[in-house]
């Protein structure tokens, strides 16, 4: 028996005037996954999310949420989906609790107080429940956006850069809550510019550029692609960088250089050549690759083996 995918996107294209926002996207997010969607500004992430949410109509292709087509079965598809938008938006006429009660009602839930109280508690909003939305700080307003996305207990939750401009405390409490939801079986799709967040949270990651998915794999495999590539920061007290390693230089600042080595074993020949040329090493550090490095390499197109799998 096959399980319906949480999100299934097939051949999705969308053009805005001269901009090809989505260029034939195929993507499957499994149920219960914590999935990352990464890419630079203009990569098509928000357009893809907008298609899933019914805010944007694709030119071609189709998208399903928990097996429901977002156009022909939009009622069921939208009930299955909670979206935290990128922009902070709010209705200035209402309090936090009124906002959540109204949002519940839109989804057909008229007696949802217990769950609303639980969300308010977990997101640190309980003391602000009766405050007008206008009086809240930016971070608090963002918490309410998260609460609004969760108010109908959707099995699939999309968070479009939910921690942009948010303080550390909220970030930690938010991720603890989202992790719990994921452990309870909710599928989470996250877009973020904080790559360390994606690396720490996501089981699989898709990287987008120019409206296409250019890399798709587990987070471990993506970071593993860089396993044999190390960055070395070396500060020389005398002498110069050996000629053989000049091409590996990523950046230089005075006598301090950052080199990218294809293999950790290359560190020893580097040090030997510096010593042979009469140079002295004042400081040396070896940095392990992380998702940020994978991201940068993928966007530059220099990580050939990270094609979608």
């Amino acid at each position: 028996m096959t399980t319906t995918a949480a999100i299934l996107v097939e051949g999705l294209t969308k053009r805005f005037g001269g901009l090809q926002a989505l260029d034939g996207i195929d993507l499957e997010v499994h149920r219960g996954e914590f999935f990352g969607l990464l890419g630079p500004n203009g990569a098509g992430k928000t357009t893809l999310i907008s298609v899933l949410a019914g805010l944007c109509r694709p030119d071609k292709g189709r998208a399903r949420v928990m097996g429901h087509d977002v156009r022909t079965e939009y009622r069921n598809a939208r009930r299955m989906l909670g979206v935290v938008p990128q922009e902070i938006v709010f209705d200035p006429f209402f309090s936090v609790r009124e906002t959540l009660v109204i949002q519940s009602g839109y989804f057909g839930l008229r007696h949802n107080d217990a769950w609303i109280d639980e969300i308010l508690e977990h997101l640190g909003l309980a003391s602000k429940a009766d405050a007008n939305m206008r009086s809240l700080s930016g971070g608090m307003k963002r918490r309410v956006l998260v609460a609004q996305a969760l108010v109908h207990r959707p099995p699939v939750i999309i968070l479009d850069e939910p921690t942009a401009g948010v303080d550390v405390e909220l970030r930690q409490s938010l991720w603890a809550f989202i992790r719990r939801l994921n452990q309870d079986g909710h599928t989470i799709v996250l877009t973020t510019h904080y790559l360390e967040e994606a690396e720490a949270l996501c089981g699989r990651i898709a990287m987008m550029k120019g409206g296409r998915v250019i890399a798709l794999d587990t987070t471990a495999n993506l970071v593993g692609l860089m396993r044999d590539r190390v960055l070395v920061r070396i500060t020389l007290a005398g002498g110069a960088l050996p000629e053989a390693f000049a091409a590996r230089r990523v950046s230089s600042e005075g006598s301090s250089h950052v080199l990218r080595l294809g293999d950790p074993c290359e560190v020893e020949p580097l040090l030997a050549q510096i010593r042979e040329s009469g140079g002295r090493i004042a400081e040396l550090s070896v940095m392990q690759p992380d998702l940020e490095e994978v991201f940068v390499q993928t966007m530059r197109g220099t990580l050939g083996s990270a094609e979608p799998t």
Partner: peptide
Amino acid sequence: QSKMTGNIIFVLLPPLS
């Protein structure tokens, strides 16, 4: 007002016909 402030999405995201 909803369009200008962006909160129209609260009406567009739910399953309202």
